[in-house]
Computed example of a mutant assay.
Amino acid sequence: MKFTSDHLARGAFIYIRQSTVDQLANNHESRRRQYGLAERARALGWADVTVIDDDLGRSGSGVSLPGFEKLLAAICEGRVGAVFAIEVSRLARNGCDWHTLIEFCGLVGTVIVDEDGIYEPRHPNDRLLLGMKGTMSELELSLLRARSMEALEQKARRGELFFTVAVG
């Protein structure tokens, strides 16, 4: 097992995030699955489980994420034995935040848990896998942005791109 009694003595922190208000309104299953991680943490042996959901509806692009900052602070204080997320690459919004999280977890001995497994950032193979997951997430995001921009440009070329004027 990649976690020890020391990890269990510290808290399990569940970080919940959905990037947009639209996702909050229409993607209830994702939120249910994320909140369900608290039960997984308890089933694995954590008694102290903290849910951080301060960043619901925040994209993170140009916006501060108080929940993520709270998570990093708790890790640095040594209060976090494990960080839980549905998909580890969703823990951070960009590569810099992602690698900061991995570095802090490695320094204080916090494991990272998602649906695929338990990762110990101090172990080179786990650190490599976490890095690859973050890189793949960034690539996926940039591909989605590029496709969206190309679709908008094609629509504009055809004269079919319309925006509504803001009220007020």
Rank of each mutant, 00 (worst) to 15 (best):
F3K: 01
S59L: 10
A92T: 05
E115S: 06
A73P: 06
A166C: 07
L144M: 14
N125S: 01
E153L: 07
F163T: 09
V167N: 03
G131W: 00
F68D: 04
E160F: 02
A38P: 11
T164G: 05
A151Q: 04
G57V: 08
Y15P: 10
G168V: 02
V88Q: 04
D6G: 07
W46G: 09
A41K: 08
L128N: 00
H28I: 09
G45N: 08
D55M: 11
L144F: 12
L143N: 15
C76F: 09
C96L: 13
S59T: 15
R145M: 12
Y15V: 05
V83E: 03
L8A: 02
Q23E: 15
I16Q: 04
V21T: 14
Q34C: 10
Y15F: 12
L152G: 00
D53T: 10
G36M: 08
L91Q: 05
L56R: 13
R157F: 03
H28M: 07
L143R: 15
G57P: 13
E103N: 14
L24Y: 06
G36E: 07
T4W: 01
V113A: 02
V167E: 06
H28Q: 14
F68H: 08
F3V: 01
Y15H: 10
Q34P: 06
R157D: 08
A9E: 14
